[in-house]
Design a binder for these strands. Structure first.
Lengths: 145, 145
DNA sequence: CTCAGTGCAAAGGATTTGCATGCCG
DNA sequence: CGGCATGCAAATCCTTTGCACTGAG
């Protein structure tokens, strides 16, 4: 999905949620598209310091409710946000235990499909209705070696 | 690993970290063994209300540092704690999006091994040193259907 | 004009910490 | 006895909210 398509989709989703696609919200979506992994509020404010923190928090929460962004928590004290999966590609996270930074990666389709199947089996055994899965790799990033 | 073995191992790890295995700490380890998934501070205090919150927080953090317990964050505002992986079995989590509860599950060895390999490939491609992985299934638990 | 969106500053809530007391070694 | 562990209460810090103001339709 190109940047413009994401933009259009975001506009549609917000309209559907009776929300406007304001300048702040556009800039948030743009910031998230620019990052190569989920971003913290601090990182977003640093990248665009015309956005006050409260606006960032408030709008991210609205974008989350409209299913445009997803909120992620890792282990440190900072929530991170990324574009919702249907606006990107299914992917996973490399989480650096040292600096806390998070970047995206993907598995090959074969592995992903097999995993999906195994998870489905495990879920039904526990009478659990699975909606999605989340897979993180913990370790040390290239910069922190 | 039996409960007693866990206890012995915990004692050894604490000694190694120059920490005592006090009564509060024993009770925390016992509480975590009893649960069939990671527990929140609230759940722990509810299960053993002779433990003051501050002691629970403080000791869990010490136990975490001694590599006896692991701290987990899901999406809600409560951290959860479980026994470290080397004191249990490798497992994953079913996270209920409705009630927030977390329970354990495992994958068959075959799937787990293949996954491990695929992750290793992906990690080295990103010059990331992988230490462990974390796999959660999100959805609705049996009780919340 | 109206009303949602904005920005500041103050409030909220999980978690942490200071300090006096108690207890293990 | 000495020092770590404990428990209470106060402090922290990310996050949320109240309120008055601004701007788009």
């Amino acid at each position: 999905m190109t940047d413009n398509e994401v933009d259009d989709e975001a506009a549609a989703l917000l309209r559907q949620a009776d929300q406007r696609y304001t300048s702040s919200r556009r800039r948030l979506v743009a910031a998230l598209q620019a990052g190569n992994g989920p971003l913290t509020i601090t990182q977003i404010v640093a990248a665009d310091d015309t956005l006050p923190q409260s606006t960032v928090y408030r709008n991210l929460s609205i974008l989350e409710e409209a299913d445009i962004v997803t909120r992620i928590v890792t282990s440190d004290d900072f929530a991170r946000y990324e574009l919702a999966e249907h606006l990107t590609e299914h992917h996973h996270h490399l989480i650096c235990s040292n600096c806390g930074d998070v970047t995206d990666f993907s598995l090959d389709t074969r592995t992903e499909t097999n995993l999906e199947r195994a998870l489905q089996r495990a879920a039904s055994k526990a009478r659990f209705t699975a909606e999605s899965h989340r897979l993180d790799l913990l370790g040390t990033c290239a910069g922190c070696q």
